[in-house]
């Protein structure tokens, strides 16, 4: 009896919190669907069709797609290189102090989202693809460094130790003993993050970091819905293509 009463109080409190949130945030779903709301939604959605397929615009979209692709690829590559270097430290291969510092740095890089990095990088490097690349590289380095370090920690120590005991130097022993075991995993993580980053690169344009996202932002701001529609379609096609390519690569090497 007492437990039921307690549960009732909790439910009442939750309900009160939900109602309070709605009224505080002024979320008025009734107004959204009342009157000519649906009518307006329909006409706005309809204004996107048919998409603009003029040759000139398609050419611009092609360039934008290439830019987005390049931003995501270079950003991920830089992140993989930095992540690999940091993961060696974070896995404790070079002492405890370096391990703690590297983990701190990786956490900091990872906990700041790409969009925030992009806004900061636009301030630092100016509008354009360079800022987007840096933003992706910084956040992804934090993610990949952490994943790479975990792979390193899970790698069996036997092969490398045996090589060291046969007189091999630390670098050679690592390359022959540990790297073959973790490389496929590293590659698979990198390709997966590349998939994420190509989606992210499309969004980063909204804060001025170049590529398809910037085209989308500009066309939407100028109420050029047909042009925006073809940009959205281009994004969709590119993401699907990269997902397929990356899945194929991971099946082959993973």
């Amino acid at each position: 009896m007492k437990r039921q009463f307690e549960a009732l109080i909790w439910v009442a409190l939750l309900l009160a919190a939900v109602v309070a949130s709605f009224s505080w945030l002024k979320l008025d779903f009734v107004a959204l669907f009342a009157g000519d709301g649906l009518q307006q939604m329909h006409s706005y959605a309809a204004s996107f069709f048919p998409p603009d397929t003029s040759t000139n615009w398609l050419r611009q979209i092609f360039h934008g797609s290439l830019e987005t692709l390049a931003i995501s690829a270079i950003g991920t590559l830089l992140a993989a290189l930095a992540g690999a270097a940091l993961s060696l430290l974070a896995a404790g291969r070079l002492g405890t102090v370096a391990k703690l510092l590297a983990r701190l740095l990786l956490n900091a890089l990872r906990s700041i989202p790409e969009l925030v990095w992009a806004a900061l990088m636009v301030l630092a490097a100016g509008l354009g693809p360079f800022a987007g690349t840096l933003a992706l590289a910084l956040h992804t380095a934090g993610v990949l460094g952490r994943l790479f370090a975990e792979a390193l920690e899970n790698a069996p120590p036997g092969p490398t130790r045996a090589l060291r005991e046969a007189g091999a130097g630390p670098v050679a022993a690592f390359c022959y003993g540990t790297l073959p075991g973790v490389l496929a995993q590293w590659l698979s993580y990198t390709l997966y993050r590349w998939e994420n980053n190509i989606r992210m690169a499309a969004v980063l344009g909204f804060v001025g970091a170049g590529g398809l996202g910037q085209m989308l932002y500009v066309t939407l701001s100028l109420f050029q819905q047909p042009r925006a529609a073809s940009v959205i379609l281009a994004m969709l096609v590119m993401v699907l293509l990269v997902d397929a390519l990356s899945a194929w690569l991971r099946r082959r090497w993973g």
Binding site: P159, A162, G177, P180
Partner: peptide
């Protein structure tokens, strides 16, 4: 048990 990486 030979300490060889399986993928090598």
């Amino acid at each position: 048990s030979p300490p060889l990486p399986p993928r090598q």
